[in-house]
Amino acid sequence: MSEGDTTAVSATGGEPPPSGNLLSGPQPNVAGAAGYPDAPPRVGFFTDTSVCIGCKACEVACKEWNAVPEDGLELTGMSYDNTQGLGADTWRHVAFIEQRLPETGREPGGGHEGFDAFEAARNLGTSPSPSPSPSPDGAISPVSPDGRTELRWLMSSDVCKHCTHAGCLDVCPTGALFRTEFGTVVVQADVCNGCGYCVPACPYGVIDQRKEDGRVWKCTLCYDRLGVGMEPACAKSCPTDSIQFGPLEELRARAAARVAQLHAAGVTEARLYGESPQDGVGGDGAFFLLLDEPEVYGLPPDPVVTTRDLPAMWRHAAVAAVSLAALGVASFAGRRR
């Protein structure tokens, strides 16, 4: 929050008024809508997966800072990812995707046969890297004559999205889940009664119940650290700045510039995920730059907060209840026997 040179929010002096609809759609002032009259600017994460190296420093830092218990030592055998997914005891999860793609002739090529690493190292910084032969136009796969494919690794550190319209928060019957003054979503462990309703309500599969303890747990966006002006532990520990923390407005501007930069460099598959306030959850507080479709990373392609449809659900249930009452009356109507 310190490096806020051009945050739109602070420049205009104060948050925009909360929008009317509290269940879905854009909501420029989440904290205001939650009843904080003069809240600090909303903060979040921009996770730029194009620079993630899969070191899992974030996973470790999160566990350490938040004293999250061990969650089983399992080898999945599917990839280098043995964490598997977010849950009660995993608040940061580094997804690790190994893809075989047709040879694209890009820098990190596939087969390394005939490649002299020492030669390359000697030339490092002195000559431009030899550019691979361009691939034939229009060909899709496989483009290299011997049918070789390129291997690429995608790594992405997943986290709670701190949704603008958070399904978990909406459905919590106890008020254990609440919106903080920073616009984030946090569980109060001393209130949660472990009803588990928030678990299936989250469209991203983030929050989960800790079996031994009965309550639910998830990322707090280091609420304790925010309170004293520190950035969250994961962002602090990320060696490549793949995880960037800051006021959401600023992060959005930075992300747009980064996508433009990547596109200009030919990485046309770079795209933002969860950044648009127009999406089904009104935009994520923690959004991502991805290099493939979201579902490849285990993210839903078009998540919608379930409570968007809640008014319609109540209406249908009300009509059904009236029908049931009518059915009861009809059962007693007619001739007596």
Partner: peptide
């Protein structure tokens, strides 16, 4: 450096639609 590194940027504009996964 980390933030602005450009991944595999060489072959401009080629679509990667050939995903097999």
């Amino acid at each position: 450096p980390g933030r602005d590194a450009v991944t595999g940027a060489q072959d401009a504009g080629r679509s990667r639609r050939g995903r097999r996964r």
